[in-house]
Design a protein around this nucleic acid. Structure first.
Lengths: 346, 346
DNA sequence: GCATTTTTGAGGGACGTACCTCATGCTTGC
DNA sequence: GCAAGCATGAGGTACGTCCCTCAAAAATGC
């Protein structure tokens, strides 16, 4: 009726509890024959270790440090909410989380913070940061201290990070591209691309994926050069105004980064709001609102709740030197339009 | 450093462990003043109950019975895989699952199986079944026995089920409609609709959502009457052949149910494979393959892994008479195209 | 066959919580 | 101010696992 326990195994295998324990935890000093006998009993009874009890007994606690840029962006804020919720849920698994913020533009500051981390008391580090030499070295140093490091949202492929949790930027650019092409009816047209900065790996890869699809599948559509806004709404407004003056026949706009509200403002100036196809990234309260009001047509996003939970799970597995279930940790590239907008989280 | 325990609360609140326990578990015999003092201490220390330890101590075991039709469809098979994986994961939380199959067309048989359930040893029941009077009564009987009942995949809105885990069929029909309309370029065109049976609530609601969007947003597109295949590939082939003969200018096909391979076969006869826009539901190995090969343009689906986990979580919560975190249990309507196809699971 | 090493058994304390009993202190009302 | 009742404290056992120690048994080498 109830699940078998270690005692049941001992009885079934005709050995003592101590021996079962030795086998279960791969402790030395057991003959192969006995190991087999115990494993047989385990299989026969269908025993599964009570992980909760095991963790309890181990008294293991996990402390994860998460590093995020101190930008005020809605995306980061949404991510923080997701992380905090994930941490609350992970408390059951004895996982604690501490959030650190670093100056978005100052990788030396980040490196300093990482270096100052008390490696002893920590089980793992997750960070969202652009890949610069300084960051690379800092990650290397953490790994040398034996700390697992996970890159989130933005990958650090040329470092020794243990894992990346997030979606493939280029694939999400391709997804955006297909939608743009098909929404424009496959006909001719001009598409404007707006980025925060084309120095960010994210932006570059998204754009690359987007261009790849446009060239291959929709050669009739002309994709204009990226505008860079540096996160300044004013810069965005000015640049878009200028471009619309030169190319008033723009039928689509691809937003690589943020700036949805500023864009809506300019478009309404030109009477284009809702008349050009706008596709962007990351579901936040702003983009949600834009979808609802018909100012945007699609958003390519990832589920930040999953991302947060996955990051903590992966760090935990790495801390225990356990294998990762890749299939569970793969984030999906989600397509959101008005009709499948998930209800607001509150 | 480590998490506070009940003992810490006792010390902090200046009461005994027994009193803290009484407060935590809402046992009687504690003055309001003391309750407050304890709760204050809990808040001050940021105490969170160690659920794992609590369950251990409670010695509570959950046994959930899941009922699925015995159809050989890939969808059901995929769902079974997801459920088994979810059950494996839930073993940590002392949740066990037993799978039951019933003859897909025989609701009396299902009712009999449900009635024969040993309510004592069970913590909850989940089922995927069409809503018929017999099923309604069976659900009512289960509830009368005190068993939580959750409808999965297909809702049973007019029963006393405790919860529904799955996506809104009408909303997913709307999503399919928008994609169809936009992929067809918003121009004129004819769309064929193919269903297993238009008696299924699922099909009716999907079609209703689809029509709603088409009429409102794409009045230039004509949506033909639904073809019914009753799950027979031969019937599908014949019906589609006939309709294509009458209306060779079909530009889009909306598949409410299964039959992707049979459809591909007919389309290739007519040289239309990859030339008409095909949109369907549920990501299975077949639809995945159809997306990859360009025979389908989009699939509206739900994440069965989430569905399975959610069903078990909800049953568990209901069994404990605990509230449900609606936001966590809401499934998203996912849009899958070739570019954002998640990697195959196995 | 004896000493040595390896394998096994027996037992216990710990983790954090639930739940039980019994005793004692503290409030009440009268 | 005294009995009755209520509120609290003290202490114990249990859940399933980990991890430790010590002793006893079995296998091994020579």
């Amino acid at each position: 009726m109830t699940r078998p326990t270690v005692n049941d195994i001992a009885r079934e295998a005709g050995v003592s509890l101590a021996t079962v324990d030795r086998v279960l935890n791969a402790r030395p000093g057991v003959r192969d024959k006995t190991i087999h006998a115990v494993n047989d009993a385990i299989r026969r009874l269908g025993y599964v270790r009570d992980v909760a009890a095991a963790n309890l007994a181990r008294g293991r606690d996990y402390r994860m440090a998460i590093f995020l840029p101190d930008t005020e962006s809605q995306f980061v804020q949404t991510l923080i909410d997701a992380l905090q919720e994930a941490a609350a849920g992970a408390a059951t698994a004895r996982v604690g989380m501490e959030l650190h913020r670093f100056p978005a533009e100052d990788m030396h500051a980040l490196a300093a913070q990482l270096a100052a981390l008390p490696a002893r008391d920590l089980s793992g580090v997750a960070l969202m940061a652009p890949e610069t030499p300084v960051v690379r070295d800092a990650v290397k140093a953490l790994r040398a201290k034996g700390l697992p490091v996970v890159a989130i949202v933005s990958d650090l492929p040329n470092t020794e990070r243990d894992h990346y949790v997030g979606i493939d930027a280029q694939a999400s650019g391709r997804t955006a591209g297909v939608l743009m092409g098909r929404f424009l009816g496959g006909a001719r047209g001009r598409v404007m691309v707006i980025a925060n900065s084309m120095h960010l790996r994210e932006s570059i890869e998204r754009r690359r994926g987007f261009d790849e699809v446009m060239q291959r599948n929709f050669p009739g559509i002309e994709v204009l050069q990226s505008l860079e806004t540096h996160g300044q709404p004013a810069t965005l407004r000015q640049a878009v105004r200028q471009m619309l003056a030169h190319a008033p026949d723009v039928t689509g706009i691809y937003l690589l980064g943020s700036g949805h509200r500023a864009l809506a403002a300019v478009l309404s100036e030109f009477g284009l709001l809702g008349r050009v196809t706008v596709i962007g990234h990351e579901l936040t309260p702003h983009t949600r609102q834009a979808l609802e009001s018909g100012h945007m047509d699609a958003v390519i996003t990832q589920n930040l709740g999953h991302l947060a939970r996955s990051a903590l799970r992966v760090l935990r597995a790495k801390a225990d030197r356990q294998p990762i279930d890749e299939s569970q940790e793969t984030l999906r590239i989600e397509i959101v339009i008005r009709e499948n907008l998930p209800p607001a989280t509150a």
